[in-house]
Design a binder for these strands. Structure first.
Lengths: 224, 224
DNA sequence: CATTGGAATATTGTCAACAATGGCGTTGAT
DNA sequence: ATCAACGCCATTGTTGACAATATTCCAATG
């Protein structure tokens, strides 16, 4: 594994480790086709291999890694086709959720989103990729939780995670980052003004640039 | 556990056990709030407790059971609210998939669906609930796999499983069963005649009766 | 008689040792 | 020099024993 800071930070809770590995994959610290070796991870996180196995199973059901019996786990390699299909579902789910969000939004929800948005913007400016990642995730989660259908919100979260592999190649692109930050602010504004039409439109359009960036990047690497 | 046939049938593969338990839950052999005890299951399936733990984790991520640390697993109790929310997502996903299915459908797909439909009808007539359950699942899976987006098909499968708890109360209702069988035949016909509009309509409407039946049953049990 | 404390039991969580498997390199033959 | 067979090493899979935690039941006390 090419992960630099292999500090032994005892993190007993499996879900904490899962999140950390999701982050590593999303930020491109672990790349597609790269192997994840149970014992290495156990050492790195200061837990028993047993815990890591559980984490790897979770990552597999999310779709971030692939496990083969007696062979081990590798980060999944998404083909353009996969990315297109995943984003098709995301657009469907997130568009629907935006339609369902109660308008005008509860003040506390708006306040929380504003707070997250501002911290996200700051992290983006400072180039703190880890925080950018976390706050972006939190923004989306908070936003879609407001749709009032927890099962829909879960599905959205699930597919956002799946897409992380695709985003790993283009995350950190300052241009995309700036645009995302701006659009988050715009979303909050639409919520406040109860502008449903624009909210739905932007909720769908907001994720497209990262899809296109991945497809573009793939083309550059492997040609047409 | 109220499961009668506690035969010790060695089923080494975790997914086989998972399917069996899904079936038990879907057919109401294990009811909501009922506990699933690891050692009992290990004994019943003739496997190590360790395997059962894995199965329970899978059932938890599907959403069929709830696990609490040091307390164990119970079949999830779906409130009407949950059922409504789950079905809202199902309608969204399945409607979209029906829109995407290539028309006219490949002959081999139609042939396979016809075969499944006929076996399903026979099982329904014979009152073989287990086979009805399996063939119904297989029909839906085969149908939605034809949408060309495997990620969408997976999500549909996922939510169909979630809904199984809700269906456990009304499965076996001969009237609902007859209707489902008929509608499957109808779906095949629409596929053959490339009747997109009706296909999409029926794909969405097809699942509504079981939702309504659950809500009705819930009202009967707990009042308004 | 209700209530609280605590032991006994039932159940799940964690671990370390061992078994099984697959990949890789070496050796030997042609 | 190339290729196949074999054995070794890295890695994952499986198991049983032990630890930690919750639940139940009973008894003692007010």
């Amino acid at each position: 594994m090419a992960v630099a800071k292999a500090k032994v930070t005892a993190a007993t809770d499996p879900s904490v480790i899962t999140n950390k590995l999701e982050e590593d994959i999303a930020l491109g610290r672990i790349l597609p086709r790269e192997r994840l070796i149970e014992e290495e991870l156990a050492l790195r996180f200061g837990v028993n291999r047993h815990v890591i196995r559980q984490v790897l199973m979770e990552l597999e059901t999310i779709g971030l890694i692939i496990r083969q019996k007696n062979k081990g786990a590798t980060v999944r390699d998404l083909l353009p086709e996969d990315v297109i299909n995943i984003y098709a579902v995301r657009e469907l789910l997130e568009g629907k959720a935006a339609e369902l969000i109660e308008m005008p939004a509860k003040p506390e929800v708006v306040a929380r989103l504003k707070d997250i948005q501002e911290r996200h913007a700051k992290a983006a400016e400072a180039g703190e990729l880890t925080n950018v990642f976390r706050l972006n995730l939190l923004f989306h989660k908070t936003f879609f939780a407001a749709c009032g259908n927890p099962h829909l919100a879960d599905a959205i979260q699930h597919f956002a995670l799946k897409a992380h592999i695709a985003r790993s190649l283009t995350v950190g692109d300052p241009k995309l980052l700036r645009r995302a930050v701006e659009e988050h602010a715009e979303i909050v504004r639409y919520l406040e003004t109860a502008d449903r039409a624009n909210l739905v439109r932007l909720a769908v359009e907001h994720i497209i640039p990262s899809k296109d960036a991945y497809l573009e990047s793939y083309r550059r690497r492997f040609g047409e």
